[in-house]
Amino acid sequence: MSSSGRVPALEVRDVYKYFGSVIALSGVSMRVYPGEVMCLLGDNGAGKSTLIKTLAGVHQPSQGDYLVDGQRVTFNSPRDALNRGIATVYQDLAMIPLMSVTRNFFMGSEPVTGRGLFRRFDVRRAREITRAELLKMGIDIRDPDQPVGTLSGGERQSVAIARAVYFGAKVLILDEPTSALGVTQSGTVLRYIARARARGIAVIFITHNPHHAYPIGDRFTILKRGKTLGTFTKAELPREEMIRMMSGGEELERLEHELREYSDDSGLQTLADAIREEEKFDHL
């Protein structure tokens, strides 16, 4: 994918974030263009959460530039980020279990009807839109009035993505959307991500699972110890190399060596199996 001459939908340049004496981010640079999926890969503790919160407007960078559509921005709250079309779907989904799907879908952006004192939450329209939008994303919800707590993990994730897309997200930041899901449900969520991309949305897909990232990603940025190690296209970065960069070469070789003792197979194959096992991801 050629990206020269185009303006990134979102870009950060050499961003640092300190919490007192803790350095959470120490030089993060990345960009994402409209209509592409940029996978941000990092192991636990790489600084993924801090980066997401910084992009989403929860934290402000201590140092470095944050650009949206080529313009420098400063977000003081998640609302600011949302207003610029940057929507974040968190791992914990920002869904309220006891409230209905409709009420969750429109939380914070409720449609209104009437004027003055009689300006009210248009519940009926909200219900219709929710149902229609979910169907558009291929999610068939039983009843938009049912509490979100009764939905499965994949359904909740899908509702959250559909919500962000409906509210005009230009950049969709997905925090580990597949990490808690089974095989079929992960597949469903990946399909929604592809649909969002087809609609011209810039997607930042954050994950520590290369097997979910590889099929959907256009470009990959590796985050390690609060630093980005660079961005690669799929052609530049074979799957094995990606896994290698994520977890650190030597550690991996040691693990490979260990694993070889249990199996006659090639070490990487065993490792891949082990990772799959760990992620409960066992298609093939």
Partner: peptide
């Protein structure tokens, strides 16, 4: 509570304050 935006926010804040904050309530 049932037919205005602030009503929806009240449910949201009590249900999950962080979630409500994250969607701009």
């Amino acid at each position: 509570l049932l037919y205005t935006r602030p009503g929806n926010w009240i449910f949201g804040i009590g249900g999950d304050e962080k979630a409500a904050l994250n969607v701009g309530v």
